[in-house]
Design a protein around this nucleic acid. Structure first.
Length: 513
RNA sequence: GAUCCCGUAGCUCAGUCGGUAGAGCACUUGACUUUUAAUCAAGGAGUCAUGGGUUCGAGUCCCAUCGGGAUCACCA
């Protein structure tokens, strides 16, 4: 244990010797919050120049002590609660209750109270000589003693920060410390919650039913990715953590719900980087009798609403680096072929596989022999186009080979009715008119099985029960999925997924402590 | 999985050519009854990520391992 930790444990013992419980059981009745007092405190200046305090004259606050400035027989503390910080003012004679020999001020407050301790106080608001709204403490009690020193982050009047707690490893491993000392981190997560709430409200208003589907699945379907594998002991069978919930949600459409959505975690056993965490949050929703054009309109409405909900002034634009992104629709609609034509001059519709291979070689795009034309087009798009799509853009009409669950295009042979939404050069959503022809769907699954045989670990497994469901008939349906973490990154200006997950996946610590 | 960078006090960081480990904040002791990055005086605090190696001598050079970050690959 460090010197500072030992001192805090000694303080714990001394508090108990003085009859003070550092971890009391009774609830503390909080009646006020720091930010509200700072914002609402009022006083008036009387004719004789003295001040009359008008409100906040009996307040009880609870929070963490984040700074302490001793000034002889007085003391200033900064108390931080969930709303923010407020200064506390304590005086020796009051804390001691008029008893000259009381240890309360000189020992308990000045020596045994440490930064990071939770305390509860009662007192009245006032404004100090220097103009800061503060609380004059009349009573205080320990609520919980902190045994470890917090990183001390200081800010001066100009807003400069000193000794910020910045080490990403420590911030992610000890998010509780990060949240305590870095208020801007709190704000990101509050925005995340607001984003999810706004989306949920939007979907509820559309009349969709929020549902839950299995996370442990006997067959992992609905996406191309490697799953986490587990095992059920009683059933003695393998179970997979879901990589998608698409096939279950469509079964519910078969069952007669007109619209369903699920917000939940997906799990993919793949690489991790600044945009991938092994578990991540997806929104998927499916609506009967609609198509992908309808989904484009809903997406424009939903994201505009989210942008306005998160923006301090209710604006629909979001500033990301140098780009001001406009979330009010309509968004640009661009076919995948037109997009490639526009950014490369290449006509992928007329080009044959050999020409595409030659282009990739010329442009140093990594490809391998197993890639067919559709995959080559996807690679070219990823390398040459994706990064240019800054303003929200619907990229529409994909080659059928890449989309085994998507309905064939109503008029364009070889394509499917699918779009992906790109914002700030990254994909944030994927949608299509769902394939509901059970015979076509079986053929698509069989093509996936061929890919699996050729060694594609991410090829989709054939799901007989899902096919049976489609054979009972699924109405024409439109479905869409959004990566909630990535949307959050977009709307909070974060470039790392770890900044929008409270507890991003980390390798285990060797010696925690 | 590959490459590069990083790991020194509770926090943020210096540490020269290889020669006894440094600063600010935090902490301890003292002064101060309206301070606010409080101030002033004095003091304590380190397995230099871990393990090897080179060397008379390693925080510093070399190798390996662990952890983190960035870039790439795969994906959302």
């Amino acid at each position: 244990m460090t010197e500072q930790e030992l001192l805090r444990r000694e303080a714990l013992v001394k508090l108990r010797e003085l009859g003070i419980d550092p971890y009391p059981a009774p609830m503390f009745d909080v009646t006020a919050f720091a930010a509200d007092i700072v914002a609402n405190y009022q006083e008036e200046v009387l004719e004789d120049g003295s001040k009359k305090r008008l409100n906040c004259q009996e307040v009880a606050l609870a929070g963490r002590v984040m700074a302490a400035r001793e000034a002889g027989k007085a003391m200033f503390l900064n108390l931080q609660d969930s709303s923010g910080r407020i200064q506390l003012y304590m005086r020796r004679e009051e804390v001691n209750g008029g008893d000259e020999n009381s240890p309360l001020f000189d020992t308990v407050v000045k020596k045994l109270l440490d930064l990071g301790d939770y305390i509860g106080i009662k007192g009245f608001a006032f404004r100090t000589k220097t103009g800061e709204v503060s609380v004059h403490v009349q009573e205080f009690k320990f609520l919980s003693k902190s045994l470890r020193p917090l990183p001390i982050v200081k800010r001066d009047a100009e807003g400069n920060t000193y000794d910020a707690f910045t080490d990403p490893e420590q911030r992610y491993r000890m998010r509780y410390v990060d949240l305590t000392v870095n208020p801007e981190v709190r704000e990101v997560f509050i925005k995340r919650t607001k984003l999810i709430k706004t989306i949920r409200q939007f979907l509820d208003e559309l009349g969709l039913l929020e549902v839950e589907t299995p996370i442990l699945q006997p067959i992992h379907g609905g996406a191309s990715a490697r799953p986490f594998k587990s095992h059920h002991n009683t059933l003695d069978m393998p179970l997979y953590m879901r990589i998608a919930n698409e096939l279950y949600l469509k079964r519910l459409i078969v069952g007669g719900f007109d619209g369903v959505y699920e917000l939940g975690k997906m799990f993919r056993n793949e690489g991790m980087d600044r945009t991938h965490n092994p578990e991540f949050t997806m929104l998927e929703y499916y609506v009967a009798y609609k198509d992908y054009f309808w989904l484009m309109e809903q997406t424009e409405r939903m994201l505009e609403r989210v942008a306005r909900a998160l923006h301090p002034s209710g604006d629909s634009t979001v500033q990301i680096g140098e780009n001001s992104i406009q979330f009010a629709g309509p968004y640009r609609r661009l076919t995948m072929f037109d997009a490639i034509q526009e950014y490369t001059g290449l006509n992928v519709e007329t080009a044959d596989e050999a020409e595409l291979r030659a282009y990739c070689k010329k442009e140093h795009i990594e490809i391998d022999a197993s890639m067919g034309k559709a995959k080559l087009i996807d690679e070219i798009f990823g390398e040459k186009v994706e990064g240019h799509l800054i303003q929200p853009t619907f990229l529409i009409d994909y080659p059928v080979e890449m989309s085994p669950l998507t309905k064939k295009h109503r008029s364009k042979a070889g394509l499917v009715e699918r779009f992906e939404l790109f914002v700030n050069g990254k994909e944030v959503g994927n949608a299509y008119s769902e394939l509901n022809d059970p015979i076509d769907q079986r053929e698509r699954f069989e093509e996936q099985l061929e890919l699996a045989k050729r060694g594609d670990e991410e090829a989709m497994a054939l799901d007989e029960d899902f096919l049976r469901a489609l054979e009972y008939a699924m109405p024409p349906t439109a479905g869409i999925g959004f990566g909630i973490d990535r949307l959050t990154m977009l709307f909070t200006g974060q470039s790392s997924i770890q900044e929008v997950l409270f507890f991003p996946q980390m390798r285990p610590e060797v010696n925690p402590g």
